[in-house]
């Protein structure tokens, strides 16, 4: 708690967490495509190969399915791999090992094994990389019992949650929005953890609850600032984990504000917002609602290349402001 706090970037925070984990535990290894001398497609691994060598910072061939499976097998037998997908989109190539093997192995074997595996997925749009390098697929994995799926939104959280993930005996999937990599924030030095199952109230308010994930937390905070200028008090909740979902924090907030907006970058339909909405509809908070629940999610399209279209495909600050204002003033 007393460790010095510096401003470092989200990607530096990830790198620092990985280095701390590797220093303290010989079993921790990094695996992924071009994470060695190249340093990773987003330079998250950086120069770790110089500190830990190629046996612990392992470049895999371009074999997502096989690489993921090797990580599963290594985890089951005593290593603690941190596996980087170059882009979260490439998880589609590895779904078999993630969904059928890693997530279920402990259950299928009646508890005889654990799968202490961490997978990192650079996700999201905003980089002009178009439809196959910009998706937010966390809800796919959020649907699978046996996995834990997190979306840290700040440098502080990504470090602490990654360290918690490495220590966790079960497979933890970390979705990292690529636009967050350069974002700076206060991060304590040394080892600390942030729980994998707790949402965080980022801004308190009493008129409307905005539950957001990943980069949308920052957009929601911006929107809340604008709304404050208009006399609307928005509470912003950073969900942080979508499996499990911290129901308690969301329910308490909705009971307080009586209004709910869910903001997430994944495709709106059948996504995280649907789950949060249903969870509230099923909870005691339903009776407190003064307005319909709103979802702001990704458009029902692939992510387009053109920058203006790309922006239009995911929720932006003005939409969040409009939605909140409309809900609070009863204008929709």
């Amino acid at each position: 708690m007393n460790a010095p706090v510096r401003e470092i970037s989200y990607s530096q925070a990830i790198q620092e967490a990985m280095a701390i984990a590797m220093e303290s535990d010989e079993r921790v290894i990094l695996m992924g495509e071009d994470i060695g001398v190249y340093g990773g497609a987003f330079q998250v691994t950086g120069d770790l190969i110089d500190r830990f060598g190629p046996d612990r910072v392992m470049d895999t061939p371009i074999s997502e399915l096989g690489g993921a499976g090797v990580a599963v097998g290594a985890a089951v037998t005593g290593l603690r791999p941190i596996f980087e997908f170059q882009f979260s989109d490439f998880a589609a190539l590895a779904m078999e090992q993630i969904v059928n093997q890693a997530a279920k192995m402990r259950y299928m074997l009646g508890g005889a094994v654990s799968v202490p595996l961490v997978m990192r997925f650079p996700a999201g749009s905003g980089t002009g990389a178009a439809a196959q390098h910009s998706q937010s697929l966390e809800a796919w994995l959020g649907h699978v019992p046996g996995l834990k799926v997190i979306q840290p939104a700040t440098p502080h959280d990504v470090k602490g949650m990654l360290l918690a993930a490495v220590a966790d005996p079960d497979p933890v999937m970390i979705f990292e929005h690529k636009l967050l990599y350069k974002m700076k924030g206060p991060v304590p030095e040394g080892h600390y953890t942030v729980p994998l199952n707790k949402a965080e109230v980022r801004r308190e308010g009493h008129d409307v609850s905005i539950v957001a994930t990943s980069i949308m937390v920052h957009k929601a905070l911006e929107a809340a600032e604008v709304l404050a200028g208009e006399g609307v008090s928005a509470e912003v909740i950073d969900l942080r984990s979508i499996r499990p979902i911290d129901q308690e924090t969301v329910i308490a907030s909705v009971k307080k504000t009586s209004r709910l907006i869910c903001v997430y970058e994944g495709v709106k339909t059948l996504g995280v917002g649907a789950e949060i909405s249903a969870m509230i509809a099923e909870s005691e908070a339903f009776d407190y609602l003064d307005a319909p629940i709103l979802r702001l999610g990704g458009s029902e399209t692939p992510i387009p290349y053109n920058p203006e279209l790309e922006k239009a495909a995911v929720p932006q600050v003005p939409e969040i402001v409009d939605a909140a204002r409309g809900l609070v003033r009863g204008v929709r």
Binding site: G69, V70, A74, Q101
Partner: peptide, 25 residues
């Protein structure tokens, strides 16, 4: 025995991972 597998080919990368552990440790 790390387990039978309902997915054809599912055990192949897992075995390689187990061998990686054996070599590394």
């Amino acid at each position: 025995n790390l387990g039978a597998n309902g997915i054809v080919g599912g055990g192949l990368p897992i075995a390689v991972g187990a061998a990686l552990t054996a070599k590394r440790l």
